[in-house]
Amino acid sequence: MILQQLVDSLSLEVLTEGADLMRGVSGGYVSDMISDVIGNAREGQVWITFQVHLNIVAAASLKGLSAIIMVNNRRPLPETLQRASEENVVIMTTSLPAFDLVGLLYDLGLRCR
């Protein structure tokens, strides 16, 4: 599975310019706690979160996550978006709440073991 497939199936809005949507997706991780993501998320997962703070970019970059998907129509702070572009981290957003988005991703076959 690649990011483009998720964007197409779930009508996600891509916020980072020139984002590489050919990246592979190995699974999903849902959390709003940065320490939890740093500790437990795995490379290639998409990270579903309500957080918009600058620190999420560093966490995603550190763990080699495929993308960050914000829920409930949350938008990154300007500095978050800026840093994401610099560090080549893909940020997307959806109007869905996290539970429903995860449900749909699960439906598409993503897992988190």
């Binding site: 539970f99 449900g103 699960y106």
Partner: peptide, 21 residues
């Protein structure tokens, strides 16, 4: 994990808001 828990409940028909979901 939270992801698995949500996925399985969703699969079993639960939604964030059953009326407008």
């Amino acid at each position: 994990s939270m992801f698995e828990a949500c996925g399985r409940l969703y699969e079993n028909g639960l939604r964030s808001d059953k009326d407008t979901g």
